[in-house]
Design a protein around this nucleic acid. Structure first.
Lengths: 148, 148
DNA sequence: CTTTCTGCAAACGATTTGCAGCAGC
DNA sequence: GCTGCTGCAAATCGTTTGCAGAAAG
């Protein structure tokens, strides 16, 4: 476990404590699995990486972690819930979604695009009364495996 | 029913026919409900607008319409599937999602932003081997009702 | 007539929850 | 010890499917 990991653990523990929750072994396992993967994972994926985690605890703890602001839920193209670390822990990024197999991959946008999105978000907020918290670009298509 | 509606019906009928399907009353009803709403609808919403549609037929026909390219499935923030008319029937647009109640609202992006997104999509396609078909910007926050 | 569609009811499957025992503070 | 966490098994609920009859062409 390197410095970045232990920092991540400290932040996670702090946010859980603030939410009146403990940072248990199961929760640490979930955070570690998500930190090790450059894409959002479905519960099924998490369970196949860490077969020792019981399903119900995984679901329950992902909800706790989401509520504590450690984890973010991402809705994929298929009906499966996917999870990744919260953006302030992972870094801001966007998603590439395969419309055939539902897999999701992270990518970054250039600063110019980020600025253009921010300007539009501000305009839309004023026009609609929405309090905009965050934005997210999704590119949809066929992943390399599915287009073969 | 005005000219635009009847054109929509003709296009829908044509795409269904191409897919070996008929344009029945139930399917017309689904297309009409979606055409009348400036936001994607969950099945629950559709059924409360058209209470005469049986659930199973609604689900089955939405699948048929999606497969025929008349309707597009949008995954919201909550776990509910939402549907809207295909982009070439509706016009290109983006979504504003309320993270509290899950509601979705359409909005348009300025051409400058669209161009910036297109450029990035092209770059990402080359870098990842993804065949990118379409893109979609999602702004997340609290809708006017939920932030009160 | 043949093929597709419909509507009911039953099945499915991802997710959630009740509960009795265990663990952290 | 009290409060929260775990893991099992059962319940939930959006969605899908089998089937017998109705409708379209």
């Amino acid at each position: 476990m390197d410095v970045v990991d232990s920092e991540l653990h400290l932040v996670a523990a702090g946010r859980l404590r603030t939410a009146g929750q403990r940072f248990t072994a199961n929760r640490r396992a979930l955070v570690d699995v998500l930190a090790d993967t450059p894409r959002p994972l479905a519960v099924h994926d998490i369970l196949s990486i860490r077969a020792d985690l019981p399903q119900s605890s995984a679901y329950r703890n992902l909800m706790v972690l989401e509520h504590a602001g450690v984890v973010r839920r991402v809705s994929g193209a298929d009906g499966f819930a996917r999870f990744e670390l919260a953006e302030d822990l992972m870094g801001h990024h966007h998603h590439l979604v395969c419309s055939s197999c539902g897999s999701v991959q992270d990518f970054d946008a250039p600063p110019q695009l980020e600025r253009a999105v921010a300007r539009t978000a501000e305009r839309v907020a004023v026009e609609t009364g929405f309090g905009i918290r965050d934005h997210h670009l999704q590119l949809t298509g066929l992943c390399a495996a599915c287009s073969r």
